[in-house]
């Protein structure tokens, strides 16, 4: 196994606040890592540092063998190999579903319209939204929008997928359809880092659960270790607070 993501001593500050404090984390190829922890622990920030949406103040991040730089062409070329799925979906509202998925394929990867559309249709079928090809995002439910967003990210053939609370903005009845797509993706061997509050997803799909607190990793291990038998005080406190929600 080789590391897709390797973070060493990564530090991130927002003004006087240290959000990430010398974090070390490796993600192996094909691994599904779920980040959990109380809000403000630094989970989303850590995820956003991995594709350079947040610059870092110390340490190094290597993705797919290439060290992350803070800007420029190298960052763009690395980003296209990292899929990102946001809490708020962030579909382009002025583009139809199909164009949402083909835009970057054509502009960044230089694929022809035919190639890009073929790939988009293949992915739409995979997330169960073939019939929505010509719809505008506004006409879709939150769950459908998030599935399109996943398809959009997958269209770039990423080596790594990042999910930043992908179901937190969804009505409860729409969470399942998005988690199912993610579950399928995990089964196909996609390397994934997921920030989520869905403990059941963590338990069933994660290879490793990383519990963050106060800008650091409180503990990590298999879902069973971390979720059933936490050893750290922070871990026990966090899980007690969840109160068996999962």
């Amino acid at each position: 196994m080789s590391a897709i993501v390797s973070m060493q001593q990564v530090t991130k500050r927002f003004g006087p606040l240290t959000v990430l404090d010398a974090v070390d984390l490796e993600v192996q190829q094909g691994e599904v890592v779920v980040l959990i922890g109380p809000s403000g622990a630094g989970k989303s920030t850590l995820l956003r540092c991995v594709n350079g949406l947040e610059g870092i103040d110390g340490g190094t991040i290597t993705v797919d063998g290439q060290q992350l730089v803070q800007k420029g062409r190298e960052l763009n070329s690395l980003r296209r190999r990292i899929g990102m799925v946001f809490q708020q979906f962030n579909l382009f509202p002025h583009l139809r579903v199909i164009d949402n998925i083909t835009m970057a394929q054509r502009d960044v990867l230089g694929r022809s319209r035919e190639e890009a559309e073929a790939r988009a249709r293949e992915l739409l079928a995979r997330v169960g939204l073939s019939e929505k090809e010509h719809a505008y995002p506004e006409r879709l439910s939150g769950g459908q929008q998030q599935r399109v967003a996943i398809a959009r990210a997958l269209a770039m053939d990423p080596v790594l997928m990042l999910f930043d609370e992908p179901t937190s903005a969804l009505d409860p009845e729409l969470v399942g359809e998005v988690l199912q797509v993610m579950r399928d993706l995990a089964e196909e061997g996609m390397t994934m880092v997921v920030v989520t509050h869905e403990m059941r997803f963590a338990r069933q799909v994660a290879d490793r659960v990383v519990l963050m607190a106060d800008g650091g990793i409180a503990e990590q291990g298999t879902p069973e270790q971390v979720l059933e038998h936490p050893t750290s005080e922070r871990g026990r406190a966090f899980l007690a607070e969840l109160g068996g929600q999962g």
Partner: peptide, 25 residues
């Protein structure tokens, strides 16, 4: 801001993002 981030996360450059996403919107 999220649309800018979504576009940049797909590997689109600043200019491409301006032309395709921020400008039209």
């Amino acid at each position: 801001v999220g649309l800018d981030e979504a576009s940049r996360s797909l590997g689109m450059s600043w200019w491409q993002t301006l032309r395709r996403v921020r400008g039209p919107l």
